[in-house]
Design a protein around this nucleic acid. Structure first.
Lengths: 232, 232
DNA sequence: GCGGCGCTTCGGCGGGCGCCGAAACGTCCC
DNA sequence: GGGACGTTTCGGCGCCCGCCGAAGCGCCGC
């Protein structure tokens, strides 16, 4: 039972730019329609349809019919993890070519959700600020919050570290290599809690039809006060 | 900057059965020669050479020249993580087809190393025995050892949980979906420590030219005594 | 029921890539 | 230095697959 063919089968589903774009667009867990995905991927609807059929049949996508629309989403968090790990490999070897970026891309690079946590310059900045201030120790495969960090997160963000770590059924804290910044940001239960609090406190808001998020006018000073993060 | 093309580029490197076989063979971190990889992949040396060139140029493999041999290995642990996550996706949707297996494949399914920890029936059996006995609580993204578990590992295997958890620079314990068993086994620092102790205690030995490991005559009763694991 | 829309299926074109045989290059050993 | 061996390069064949235009199917709203 050579395992190669099975791996190749799955990898082949992501080896096409159009399909990869679709998968990337679905990485935040939302469900998108076939046309939205066609547009995102930059192909005609009929071509997209073929791709979506392959991805569904391959088990990467789940389909929900709703009226005349068809909503596709990632079939499992494991699929998202796979894409995340592919992006991590992309990030490490990324040739330092600087390509021109559109405003839309700029927004994504500035701040976005990666599943349930924050990525982009904002996500990385918060992460590095916490590490810099000895509030967080981050390794290549995990991380832990220091006592000072626990105090800071409780007092300034309203996160109860003990509650977040509760049971440890999911990883408490793990680094997620940011494809745009090529540096790690915080994922896992802690990453989710951080993002959740930032939304709840009104520091950041989601932008329409994208994974990008923006810092609110109230959020800017709040983020500076909490983490010392002040992005332009 | 659509990220799709970059993802596709990496995925394309694994979308060929021959290349996927090569990558899978390198998953334990060893370095193999071009001919060994050609044989593993089931292609002629000249074909393999082309594949290896692509994988190297793509940044997935690192090359070390040694005399007239060329040793290839995974360029980074991140590459291994990527393959692991692809295998996880393979495992979840795996059609329950039972293919005939060769003795060589049987040995791999029975017990093997997955990087620095144990996989296959042995790895899964140990994991499930620990969970069953309430020595370990395993979630879908992490896990933790109970007090009873810490005592068991210290007394019977000689693992100092506190030392293993030291610093948490790498994930203490995370589940790794086993492609042959389709159930999780223990990875992370704990998984590495378990494997290391089993080798050190002489309970298991590596088999030649493969990632497979075998249980020694001394190991069989020891594994039964320590974990209640008794594989045929 | 008729038109519009979202989505899929079909068919044919074109390009890219994996494959191997043959041959060249470099290293080791006698 | 000659011969064997490990590895790579080159060239040509063949196949697979992504692409789009055209057409078909199902759901919606007037």
């Amino acid at each position: 039972m050579p395992i190669g063919p099975s791996i190749a089968e799955i990898a082949a589903l992501a080896d096409d730019p159009a399909r990869a774009n679709m998968l990337a667009a679905l990485m935040d867990g939302r469900a998108l329609t076939a046309s939205e995905l066609a547009y995102t991927a930059g192909v005609t609807p009929q071509t997209a349809s073929g791709h979506l059929a392959k991805l569904s049949q391959g088990g990467l996508l789940a389909l929900a019919k709703q009226g005349r629309h068809r909503y596709y989403r990632l079939a499992s968090p494991l699929v998202g993890r796979m894409l995340e790990s592919i992006m991590a490999v992309v990030a490490i070897e990324a040739p330092p070519r600087h390509r021109p970026r559109s405003p839309r891309e700029d927004a994504l690079c500035f701040a976005r959700t990666c599943y349930d946590h924050l990525a982009g310059r904002l996500g990385v900045a918060i992460t590095e600020a916490l590490v810099e201030g000895r509030h967080l120790v981050l390794g290549e495969d995990g991380g832990e919050v220091t006592e000072e960090g626990a105090a800071l997160l409780r007092e300034r963000v309203g996160i109860d570290i003990a509650a977040v770590a509760q049971g440890r059924r999911r990883a408490f804290c793990r680094p997620c290599l940011d494809w745009s910044e090529r540096r790690p940001h915080i994922a896992g239960a802690l990453g989710a809690a951080l993002a959740e609090r930032c939304f709840a406190l009104g520091w950041i808001v989601r932008l329409r039809d994208t994974r990008a998020v923006a810092i609110t006018t109230a959020g800017r000073p709040a983020l500076r006060a909490a983490f010392g993060v002040d992005l332009r």
